[in-house]
């Protein structure tokens, strides 16, 4: 007996909401990517909970894939940020929007 299954889902939901708020409200490219990472992590957590609930290893496999996708996404995202910084000298979204318009 650990915890009710619902509590794991609620925990994942709370982390996801925090990551979403980070990705949506922060005006810094790095923080946006960080928020996306947090959301992915929350998704992986929900999958592992479900995996334990039904005693199936499929959920863990999906969590592993999420990990790999997160790694790929972050490498591409950060490379994009670097090239944006090289080109515009800033990673602040507001300034970027003004200078690219």
């Amino acid at each position: 007996m650990i915890v009710p299954y619902g509590h794991v889902i609620v925990l994942a939901g709370i982390i996801f909401l925090l990551g979403l708020l980070c990705a949506v409200t922060r005006r810094n490219l790095i923080m946006i990517v960080l928020g996306i990472e947090i959301m992915l992590n929350a998704g992986a957590l929900a999958f592992i909970g479900a995996s334990l609930r039904w005693q199936q290893m499929g959920g863990q496999a999906v969590a592993l894939f999420i990990l790999a996708i997160a790694a790929a996404e972050v490498s591409i995202g950060l490379a994009l940020i670097v090239s944006v910084y090289r080109k515009y000298g800033t990673i602040h979204v507001d300034i970027l929007e003004k200078s690219t318009r």
Binding site: V24, T25, I32, V93, E97, T100, R101
Partner: peptide
């Protein structure tokens, strides 16, 4: 396209 990407993310959610 040019508007805030975050606003779009928000609306998607």
């Amino acid at each position: 396209h040019m508007t805030n990407i975050q606003a779009k993310l928000m609306s998607a959610f």
